[in-house]
Design a protein around this nucleic acid. Structure first.
Lengths: 199, 199, 199, 199
DNA sequence: AATGAATGAGCTTTCATTCAT
DNA sequence: GATGAATGAAAGCTCATTCAT
């Protein structure tokens, strides 16, 4: 059972690495098997189909993100500190594991990602909404739906990562500017008088 | 020439619709041809290969977005009004043309999207950076790189659209909340004293 | 009629050049048309089909060879001189027009070349057999079937050409040896006591 | 390993038979597979591509010829006997395996046959050149390049086979004449006073 | 006669999946 | 459980040929 879990994880990690470089459709099952050092047929001992493997990959990556981020959060700290820590940990994780980011982006924009899936229960999303819920309850964040706050913040983190990925080489000078992004986002979501709204 | 352009556009639009529903790899060339009412071989009169068609699709969609958005911008208005108009027009365009959004998301997260492509010249990106440049020059926006501002704002718009796409049915109650998102983003990017930074 | 003939010849020559480099199946009709400066459809004004064009090419090349070689033969000379002249003119022609040789070789070894075709009437072959017939009648050649003599001699010429084509660069030293080949062939076919036959 | 070799050989033999009748381009991979009793995809387990299969076919046929002919040569016999045996064995092999001859002719006159390939190492060609080298060293053959002798002799054998293939039906009377061809060739290559050369 | 866009049959090739060993 | 050769549906693409202009 333990060994089996190890082999399954090995396959998932192999798939992740290959998908990072070649995309879903540039990554045949046989390539995943070879990279993991097993025979092609063996993949079907652990997954019902390639599609099934990709769906499990989604679950796997999300749970890895959840474990990594939630374990580093200290609820006893002031919320603003927790927010900056979340930002730092998320960007750190994605930069350390580009395969996570590449996979998630591809998955989300693929036909695998259905409305049902998005609305299904999900520990990571629940944790994240609870996180923002706490910010609201502590009167630190604007009293909006935590779901919306979560999406806005995660979206901004992805944008920053994407930027670093594509322009990294050219833009070391701007690194300090990039450090301002979480502050901008924080300024957007923190409790405050809303600016002159636009009718 | 005119007819040819029409047929090429017809093929592009057909591809866009089908890719929205089935993804790049769920959309064979034959399906695009059938949907456009031509023979499979005809596609190759207008595109060198399927990959070439997808790259042209990217150019096509970007130029459509550019035309739509830039034509609706009035530089004589105060910048904040222009910002809200941009937001409204972008979300309106993406909601009216879901195929545009689905395609762009898939393209960006696919292996088609290379670093070189991201760094190449692009009217739409240039227009967008000039837009934010003007906000900075008018002392309305924070003095950051317009590139970064553009990415943050576009990323947030995409996040909002994604949210609407997946949760729309359940969440009519939140619509007013969604209307607050551009205000949050505006609060994040407008010139102001930065909040207590986090060391 | 004259202009038409010119265009047909132009197409034939274009086809020949392209087939030399790319082979029958590497030479689409559209490529021939483009090379000749006409539209693809125009080819079908002059030929019923691509296969038909290839068959006409065979006739065309053979008649060109026939015209070239027969016009340079002087029946008043001693036969041995005529033989060496034939050899020289054939090798000269093939080296000057590699497209002729490449085409003929390909045609002969292709499914186009049927037994019927080989046995059909053919001015070039008839001229050639008459040539060797005269050698026999003049008691200079062995009294064999002129058909067989023709095939032996032509086959040897082809062999020599092939050798020059593939080993030319390396083998300038051997050129004088190559000059001995027609003498060897002459020694083989000239009237003489046959060597000790092998039972 | 043994089974795999068997199946590969089965595919090669199937391809050979079909190419004999239909030519390279009249023989789809699917036809080869069907003839061998396997699925189309299976061909790609043994060959990287159709082109690759054709190149392997060339190697295969040449090695078969080499094995057949070299095994039947007895170097202890007088050279003239060995020469006539070579002739007889070659014509016998080609007549017994017309697919060998058809394939080799097509291959040689196709774009597959490059100058590099012709100049590459090749056991069969080396054996053949050594064969003629021995004739020279035994003072039986003219002191020419063995390469040239090999080409001349092989070319003549091919010519004879071609003749038999196309005129066989009509020409039983000539069979005795055909038997004279190797004697003519022998007379051409054997050591002797060259005939009156032609300036 | 000439054009060249359109056609679609037919090809090569890939790859998810199966199953005898 | 593991293997990997075999499968065959399905894809991308080519190109001989047609036909409205």
């Amino acid at each position: 059972m333990d060994i089996n879990q190890d082999k399954k994880t090995l396959l998932l990690e192999s798939a992740l690495e290959l998908i990072r470089d070649h995309g879903f459709h540039g990554t045949p099952v046989s390539m995943v098997a070879k990279h993991a050092g097993v025979a092609a047929g063996t993949v079907y001992t652990y997954f019902q189909s390639k599609d099934d493997m990709i769906k499990e990959l989604y679950t796997y990556v999300k749970s890895q993100i959840y474990l990594e981020i939630s374990s580093k959060d200290d609820p006893r700290l002031p919320f603003q500190s927790r927010f900056y820590a979340l930002w730092k940990n998320m960007t750190g994780l994605y930069l350390a594991k580009p395969s996570f980011q590449r996979f998630m982006e591809q998955f989300i924009s693929s036909p695998f990602n259905t409305a049902e899936l998005q609305q299904s229960v999900d520990v990571w999303r629940e944790w994240l909404e609870l996180f923002f819920q706490q910010g609201i309850e502590q009167n630190v964040l604007r009293p909006l739906s935590p779901k919306i706050l979560a999406i806005m913040v995660l979206g901004s983190i992805i944008s920053q990562i994407r930027y670093l990925t594509y322009f990294n080489s050219k833009t070391q000078l701007m690194e300090e500017e990039l450090g301002l992004i979480p502050q901008m986002v924080w300024d957007g979501i923190k409790r405050q008088e809303l600016s002159d709204s636009y009718p």
